[in-house]
Each structure stands twice: as C-alpha cells, then as structure tokens.
C-alpha cells in the first residue's frame, strides 16, 4: 500500500487531474510525437524555442496518470530554461527512473515524485515517454517510440 501511495502521490494525482500546459502550440519551433505501442500511450510535445531558450512548452495526447503527470510537470519545469538545461534535466529524470538507485539531484525538485514508479517496472515507461519526446523535439526529431 505504501508503494502504491508513493506511486500515486498527491502531486501526481493533481497534475493528472489538472494537467498544466495541456494544449497544442500550432506553429511552434519544435514538435515531436511519442507513443508506446504496448500500452497505447500517445503524447505530443510542443516547444517554442527562441535563441536557445524555451519560451513556451505544452503537450497533448492521452495516457495514464503517470504519463500525464510526468508530461505536465515536465512542461512546468522546463519553461524558461535553455535547450541545454532542459536536456540535462531530462537526462537526470531518466537516470532517476532507470538508473541505479541514488539520491536524485536537488535540482529536480517536485519531479522526485515520479521516482515512485521505480517499484512498478511496468509503469516506468509511462513516466519516461514525455521526456523522451521532449528530447526528440529539442533534437529536431519528429517521432519516438518507446517500449522501455
């Protein structure tokens, strides 16, 4: 039960229910689509980059509470950052979810709530997908598929 409440923390449930930046940015500079063919999660990430700075970021699509909350928190955290900072943050999140269990960097703040998925291997990919997709958008790729 406690592992379950680690997964569905208040902040995750809140972002799931009221996702931030849950919209499309029709003519943005970078966009990528991510999907997970195993569970059908689909996410589209929109980034407005102005001289290396993320001035706006949003997402659309459908997925479980974990992927929605992850995407929502991601947009809240990366808005206003540089492309490089966003990439570093994404790598730190992925390391927190997929790498060896270590104290996550303080810079992640609220995002640490996502680490509850570590106890639910089948759900890790849900949390990772939006970040993968953000990185693809920042790299100028248009589509990613994760089964990891």
């Amino acid at each position: 039960m406690s592992e379950l409440s680690d997964l569905y923390q208040e902040i995750i449930l809140d972002h799931n229910k009221r996702p931030r930046n849950f919209r499309e940015i029709p003519s943005c500079t970078c966009v990528a689509e991510g999907n997970n063919p195993l569970c059908g999660d689909e996410v589209k990430v929109f980034v407005q980059l102005e001289s290396e700075k993320i001035t706006d970021v949003a997402f659309s699509g459908h997925g479980c509470a974990i992927s929605r909350a992850s995407a929502s928190m991601m947009t809240a955290k990366t808005k206003g950052r540089t492309r490089e900072e966003a990439r570093e943050m994404s790598q730190a999140v992925r390391a927190m979810l997929l790498g060896p269990e270590v104290e996550p960097p303080r810079t992640l703040g609220d995002l640490v709530a996502l680490s509850g998925v570590r106890k639910f291997p089948a759900r890790i990919k849900c949390a990772v997908l939006p970040w993968h997709t953000l990185e693809a958008a920042l790299d100028g790729e248009s589509a990613v598929t994760t089964e990891e």
């Binding site: 592992e3 379950l4 509470a65």
Partner: peptide, 12 residues
C-alpha cells in the same frame, strides 16, 4: 482514470 492506473492499483 486511465485503464492502466486501474490495472496497477488492482494488482496492488
């Protein structure tokens, strides 16, 4: 509630 969340919580 997404079906996968239902599935995970029921599994628990």
């Amino acid at each position: 509630v997404h079906p996968h969340d239902i599935g995970t919580i029921l599994d628990n």
